[in-house]
Computed example of a mutant assay.
Amino acid sequence: MRPTPPTLSRRLAAALIAGGLTLLCTAPAAAQEAAWPAKPITLVVGYPPGGSTDLMGRLVGAELSTRLGQAVVIENLGGAGGTIGAQKVVGAAPDGYTLLVGSSNELAIARLINKSVKYSPANFTPVGLIGSQPLVLVASTATGVKNAGDFTDLVKKNPGKFSYGSSGVGTALHLAGEMVKEQGGLFMTHIPYRGVAPLTNDLVGNNLEFGVFVLSSGLPHIKSGKVVALGTTAAKRAPATPDIPALAELPQFKNVDIESWFALVGPAGLPQPVVAKLKKALAETLQSPDFRKKMAAAGSGVAAPDANLPQFWRDEVAKYTKIVQFAKIDE
């Protein structure tokens, strides 16, 4: 047998060594992904405790903990409309140990109205849609308005006289109000509040004529008769409140369809084995009767386990972009 040339032998040895080093480097990473989760997971919520996004985070976190066999710790990072929490997750290591339960505000709306928000959907790994909450347009009792038809007639007869409030500029509540104005051809002034509490105080105290709430926040005041529900903003009536009409039932508001939605995401570049485990755990969660019961009690709908979050996200951004342009919120 002819001897192997020395040059070829050196090349072969170098290739074998390089291959061995590659295996040595990739094997631990693969093992870590297979063993995930091997320690507690941090679930970031970009709002203080007690709000709707925080509730979603705690409900989902408890379910994921049970299904993944590891503690899921909620980290509330309130401020800047949820964007501080979102930015933390964008900058986190893509190892599956830092995730975000985010809402439409910070995931889709914020970057359309605030040039300082630099992240986009491309900076996240989408895991899955959790659910959504309809918003509700309400009137103070002093207006004498009883339904959406009365509301439309009153505002059209008095252009510029009335105001509506939301929990802040660029929130889903603000965009819902602007969508109602655009669809109905109405002229009202938007008054942004620093959260739901002062908005509620002014509506209940008859210092503001109209307002937009997340349904779960507005429901106690609707039931007590302190404000009047004019209609929800989803395309159909909310299962939790079948007695409150959807605004879309009126011809002038037939295209009103906006909700506050919630999704589970991670930083860009999450390993596929980790994403697969998260998707499976979330799908099981969404089908859990106990979870669905708790979501219904909070006035929230549950997403389909196979919902296409990336496509849904793109569609929502396109919808919000039109509203922002109409209301000139980004100027």
Rank of each mutant, 00 (worst) to 15 (best):
A27E: 06
D153F: 03
L264G: 07
L129Y: 13
G266E: 02
L100F: 10
L112S: 04
L175N: 04
V228A: 08
K280C: 00
L270K: 10
F213L: 04
P273D: 03
Q87L: 10
K319I: 05
G20I: 08
V117Q: 04
V90S: 03
N308C: 05
G218N: 07
L43P: 11
W261V: 07
R111E: 12
L8N: 00
P310D: 09
A18P: 01
T125V: 11
T7G: 00
D243M: 06
L107C: 01
N105K: 00
A235Y: 08
S217F: 13
P6Q: 04
Q252K: 13
F124E: 12
A304K: 13
R2H: 08
L186K: 02
G299S: 01
G19Y: 01
R194I: 12
W36Q: 06
P310S: 12
E178L: 06
T66R: 15
A297W: 00
Y320F: 14
P49V: 10
A35E: 10
K279E: 14
A304T: 12
L129N: 13
A30Q: 14
P37F: 08
G149A: 15
S132A: 14
I222C: 10
L107E: 01
L230W: 09
L16V: 14
V214L: 12
M56E: 10
T232K: 02
L208W: 07
G231P: 09
P40T: 07
V45P: 08
P289D: 12
T42N: 14
F124T: 12
D290E: 15
T98D: 04
K236R: 12
L107N: 03
A238V: 11
I244W: 05
L203S: 02
K328L: 09
G51D: 13
S103P: 00
W36C: 08
V138Q: 04
V90A: 04
F213A: 06
A148D: 09
V212Q: 01
